Amino acid sequence: MLKRLIITVLVLAGVLVAADYAAAAAAESVVSRQLRERLDLADDPNVRINGFPFLTQAVAGEYGSIELTADRLKVGDLQNVQLRANLHDVQAPLSGLLGSGTPGLRVGTAEGAARVGADDINRMLPGIDRLSLGNVDANAIADLITDGADPSLRALDPESVARISGDVPVGGGRTESVVVFAELQVADGAMRVVPRVVRDSSGDELPEPVASIVRQTFALRVDPGGLPFGVVPTTLQVRDGTLEIAGEASDVVIGAAPGTVVG
């Protein structure tokens, strides 16, 4: 008898879990379509509603966290921009998700980011071969200063410094393998790469005429387009071999007509 009861409970639990995941998938599809329209995307973005069980969140119309990803977006000359967003403290009435009520989401805090990969950056820096992006830590900056670099580098946050390497033409038919340590800045919503230190592939200083060519070649300004949900970009960092510009916004309404009250 007890064994049969345990089996029954397990079966019911499995059915409830399956139903919860199915409901979450359906809701993610609805939210994805709303976000596609709001962000004017060519395809539905990937949406993940975090937290379990989903149904208790749906009944309350309150969600702790929703993640959004959209890849391979074309923005101006950029061919492969990645958008990422984390939405926190989301209010979305169940009737809106079911299509019988006012559609839309109200978001307490939205964290948004756009990533531009090395291939896109390379297209904007013609003539450079084997370009790659990497991170820098405080020890690397200290070593540069010890080797004669500008002491003002010590004031930089290591996360706002990139290590960029590549093969660059330096005149006279010559190509030099170089490493550039660049300060990453955000200016008027755009990414700026400002070379600060230039070395050859062995870490030695380059002759100033060559170093000047390299600094000019690697200086870059990239506009990745606006971040989603009115997010104001505040940081630029290297992430997973890409340049990521990110920021956040508060009290955002998504997918509802202007003036509509959501939540």
Rank of each mutant, 00 (worst) to 15 (best):
L97V: 07
A140N: 01
Q79L: 09
G263A: 11
L94D: 08
L97R: 04
R38G: 06
A110T: 06
F52R: 13
A26T: 11
G117D: 15
V161E: 05
A256I: 10
A58N: 03
E183F: 11
R163E: 00
E111Y: 13
R48C: 07
Q57S: 14
L236D: 00
L206E: 08
D157R: 13
A58D: 10
L94R: 10
A58K: 07
V231S: 05
D150S: 12
A22E: 01
D251L: 03
V179N: 03
A70C: 07
A13Y: 08
L83P: 05
G226W: 04
Q185I: 14
T217I: 07
S202W: 01
T69S: 15
I121S: 13
D147I: 05
L184W: 11
P207Q: 11
P169E: 08
A182C: 10
A60I: 10
Q79K: 15
R48P: 01
G241V: 10
Q79Y: 09
I7G: 08
E183C: 04
L131W: 02
E205K: 14
V232T: 14
L184F: 01
S212Q: 14
A58Y: 06
V262M: 00
A149W: 10
G226P: 11
V161W: 09
E176N: 07
S202E: 15
D89H: 07
G134E: 08
N139W: 08
V75F: 03
L12A: 13
D129I: 04
A13H: 03
Q185E: 15
R48G: 12
D147P: 09
L68W: 02
D43C: 05
S160H: 15
L68Y: 04
A22Y: 00
G96N: 11
V81G: 06
P126Y: 11
